[in-house]
Nucleic acid binder design. Structure first.
Lengths: 211, 211
DNA sequence: GTCTATATGGGGATAGAC
DNA sequence: GTCTATCCCCATATAGAC
């Protein structure tokens, strides 16, 4: 049963409209970035008037915060559904693939790292920070586990690994590979995984075949 | 003899002021990003009035374009001065270090990749594109050479290596490592080099000691 | 809750005096 | 070329009718 089942019909419609607004926001955020989006853009994309947006979200900052929260919830849910027997490094590769495919499908990158203002806004949202910390805690445990099993380099501290990992989920190389490299999504995901885990130096293992 | 020697005194002062404006622009760009900078910010930082800026640069876009051109000129000059006997992969590591130290000192990252608008502006500047293509051509030759000498993974196409390399020069992990990881500049450069060339996976070579 | 119409403020760019 | 003062667009946010 869907989560909507708990809500009365009127509230269902409300929730659906909010999701539509967040979908539009996500799409525009990914395409243009926070600063270049206008609330008029969002309103037009979702087919509402601007004041109606403000009935749902009290500001542009609130809107993007909710979109990012939904993204993190998606990541947490994805992690949660991975099979228990999966090796830690495979979990990391799998989540990276998920994040890259979300982006390639027009979604958002994980990190708001590109924009100081957005980062400041998000860190002031308790609901966002809670989820970010939760995700980080889980990934940190996975990294520790992976190092213990010699699946990750124990020469690198956990935070270096984690920040580099996050950075790969929002790596600008993805855009360039699609724009200029003319690779399809599968090839991009594969190449990004290789670069992330084995680097560009010699001695890298051969990339496994997709599928 | 300095390049200023070719100019008459008045033109020297003009050039020096332009450099000061570009310095201020570079510093602010690195700190806040294009969209959040105002021409008032730049004017105040450099100690001029806003209209005076427009005597030197005809628009905000022009200003950032010139700042990026100066950055690329710095990179090209750095590459040019590397000793002829240096191995190709060492050239790449050295230039990466240069770019990271420029950033850590408050300078600009190579790629305007974070901002669609800026990228569009830059690609319309012939002088910028000329330099970007020249740098890319030189790096592509170095990559090819490095692969031939088995210093880089021949499993990866040149463009994947190059885009990933560029992305490392503007990697957001750098900011996070400094902000939250509390590493000093040397450690950050070293870790970024390891991650770039060897990845985060096991089997990475141990990082060499700094200095 | 949705709309049309509008208030408000910020920031790019310029006029015109010196 | 530099300044003070200003123009003017645009985008966030809201007022008020329905």
């Amino acid at each position: 049963m869907s989560v909507l089942g708990k809500l009365r019909f009127k509230d269902q419609a409300f929730k659906l409209r909010e999701d539509a607004i967040l979908d539009a926001t996500t799409k525009l955020l990914a395409a243009k970035g926070f600063d270049l989006i206008t609330m008029d853009d969002v309103a037009e994309e979702v087919g509402l008037s601007k004041p109606s947006l403000y009935k749902h979200f009290k500001s542009k900052e609130d809107l993007v915060t909710e979109a990012m929260i939904r993204l993190l919830d998606g990541a947490l849910a994805y992690l949660d559904e991975l099979p228990a027997e999966m090796a830690p490094v495979e979990r990391l590769k799998s989540l990276l693939e998920w994040a890259l495919r979300v982006r390639l499908a027009g979604g958002l990158p994980f990190l708001p790292s590109t924009n100081t203002h957005v980062r400041a806004v998000l860190t002031q949202s308790l609901r966002y920070v809670t989820r970010a910390l939760k995700l980080n805690r889980q990934l940190d445990a996975i990294v520790t586990d992976a190092k213990r099993k010699a699946e990750l380099s124990s020469a690198l501290p956990n935070d270096v690994i984690l920040f580099s990992y996050y950075a790969r989920t929002c790596d600008p190389a993805v855009e360039y590979l699609r724009l200029f490299g003319k690779y399809d999504d599968d090839a991009i995901v594969l190449h990004m995984q290789v670069v992330c885990f084995a680097g560009i130096g010699a001695g890298s293992p051969q990339p496994r075949q997709p599928g």
